[in-house]
């Protein structure tokens, strides 16, 4: 019973959904305030998702039906699993050795199945969006792995989330060292690209390719993608908080999460959309050398 409660309600499904949807709303509201608008009410994202679940479901005739239907569901379920793992180790300290590697695998699955769903819908614009997402993935996942390596080296080779938290509680957060700060900055750009918001939203650019991979999705399947995004809005900032500022946890989560959302929306609203060429250049020729410098500094001990 306690296990069921912890899976479905408190650190699990419902909790993540509420906080993620709320964080997403906060980002939308801040965007609106940046543009001197009023912005949507606080329940907007929940209402949008609820509405999508009773709209009509259309499956294109030329689509690969199995893949088209399965990919939103698989991406959503992988995100639920991810939220369970991260929240369990955050709130209860339950984890296992090497769970950071499992997280690394699971965190790729949503993007992968967005790409597959886009290609399965057999729409030229969706295919364009998927191709762009592939190139984005090649750049941002790479950077995230580099910053994870920095964290692992800093915490003396521990590869479990719980171990990293313990290490930081004993010896202070990684953020307050030079290499840790480099890793944190790189991971913030990773979040930006992973959530698909400006400056890295080429894959679903509403103005040029009309939503990219999501163009043929309607009704419940689009709702699953929106749920995935709401979950990612909670998971990614919490993962970063856990990896880099693990010194003080517990109720400190509240203001740290707010600060992360504010950082994300400030970057979103002060930058134009980059072209895919520029994104690759930025990630491979600027951020990757920076990450290498971070790794070297972490080995030396700064």
């Amino acid at each position: 019973m306690k296990l069921v409660f912890s899976y479905f309600i408190f650190p699990g499904f419902l909790f993540t959904l509420l906080l993620g949807g709320w964080g997403w709303w906060l980002e939308r509201k801040l965007t609106a305030r940046f543009q001197y608008r009023i912005g949507p009410p606080w329940y907007q994202n929940f209402i949008d998702i609820m509405k999508l679940f009773y709209k009509e479901q259309i499956i294109p005739v030329e689509a690969n039906k199995t893949l088209f239907v399965l990919s939103p569901i698989i991406s959503f379920s992988s995100v639920v699993l991810l939220s369970l793992m991260i929240n369990q180790s955050y709130f209860y300290g339950r984890g296992f050795v090497g769970d950071i590697v499992v997280i690394l695998y699971l965190i790729i699955i949503p993007s992968l199945f967005i790409i597959l769903g886009g290609i399965a819908s057999s729409n030229p614009l969706a295919t364009t969006g998927s191709a762009r997402e592939i190139k984005l993935m090649l750049s941002y996942e790479f950077i995230f792995i580099v910053s994870l390596i920095i964290v692992i080296i800093k915490s003396k080779g521990v590869i479990s989330l719980e171990g990293i938290m313990d290490y930081q509680q004993k010896f202070g957060s990684h953020l307050w060292s030079i290499s840790g700060a480099i890793g944190f900055v790189l991971s913030i750009f990773y979040i930006q690209a992973k959530l698909g918001i400006v400056p890295f939203d080429v894959s679903e650019a509403e103005q040029e390719i009309m939503g990219g991979p999501f163009i043929e999705y309607s009704g419940p399947l689009l709702g699953f993608y929106k749920l995935t995004k709401a979950f990612l809005y909670f998971i990614l900032p919490v993962l970063l908080i856990l990896l880099f500022t693990g010194e003080s946890l517990g109720w400190h989560l509240i203001y740290k999460y707010l600060i992360m959302i504010v950082i994300i929306s400030v970057i979103k609203n002060t930058n134009p959309r980059l072209r895919i060429k520029d994104i690759l250049k930025l990630f491979w020729f600027l951020f990757f050398p920076l990450g290498c410098v971070g790794v070297v500094l972490a080995i030396i001990g700064y």
Partner: peptide
């Protein structure tokens, strides 16, 4: 635009007709 801002009523301009109400 900021003067009229229909997003406060939850309305959004979407790019694909599959998402439209």
């Amino acid at each position: 635009t900021p003067r009229f801002d229909i997003e406060r009523f939850g309305m959004q301009l979407v790019g694909s007709v599959r998402h439209a109400d």
